[in-house]
Amino acid sequence: MRKRFAFLYDQKVAPYVFVLPFILTFLIFFLYPVLSTIQMSFQEILPGMISNVGFKNYQRLLGDRIFRTAITNSVLYTFWTLALLIPFPLVLACMLNSRSMMGRGFFKASLFLPVVTSVVVAGTIFRLMFGEVEGSLMNSLRALLGLSPIKWLKVRQTGFAAMVLMACWRWTGVNMLYYLSGLKGIPPEMYESADIDGANVWQKFWLISVPLVKPTIIYVLTISIYGGLAMFTESYMLWAGNSSPKNIGLTIVGYLYRQGWEQNRMGYASAVGLVLLAVAMLINLGQLRLTGVLGKELD
């Protein structure tokens, strides 16, 4: 018995045995699907009829105006979520980290609550809040200001704003927690000596907190870029399906879903997915290089 498992005691072999579960998961659930998607993107796939079509799927993608709408939407959505979800949670985290803040536990919990709320429930509630009937929450608010009701989810600007708002509501808590853990790592002596030097709140935030949580900011930025570009569920739930009026909420993944499932074109959808992969990789690699993370590792 001992002999059969002797290799486990071998210092050269044992590490490979321990990483084997990861390697297997990676190969089966990541590498194989990616390679298979690449292959599928050059095919037309129908039950009992799979044919190679070369670069045709990609050529069609170039002339597809609705795909362009999807890319524009995804990029815009990513931009707005970054613009709002990077700075504001940081400020909130600093406030919650400050000892002079009252009711920290309460605010921490209430800001985190949306994260654990099911997106299906959240989507339904936002859809009702932004309903076009007079009695919907947002239209009641407009009525208080003496304004007439509007069709929030049928107009481009307001529909898009609702989607970004929902993302902020959902993700502020997560980002705030990341920042909080980053802030906790800053030695309190730093702030104490700054106090002695007569630094004000703003200087302490800008010159101590921000530079020291930079690694956390870069991490949050990286996952937010990916999260923004790959967004699908929020839009799907807000409009109770993948079809939003005038494609206001159509994202790249939404388009992939529409082509692959709703119109049974797996090959074309694979091409859409690979374009998303390429865009996300390019933006993230560029951003990581700019912020110096990749450069450092390469040195």
Binding site: L46, P47, G48, M49, E262, Q263, N264
Partner: peptide, 9 residues
């Protein structure tokens, strides 16, 4: 119509 594409199953 999606299910009539290819060889109907």
């Amino acid at each position: 119509p999606n299910f009539m594409k290819g060889v109907p199953q």
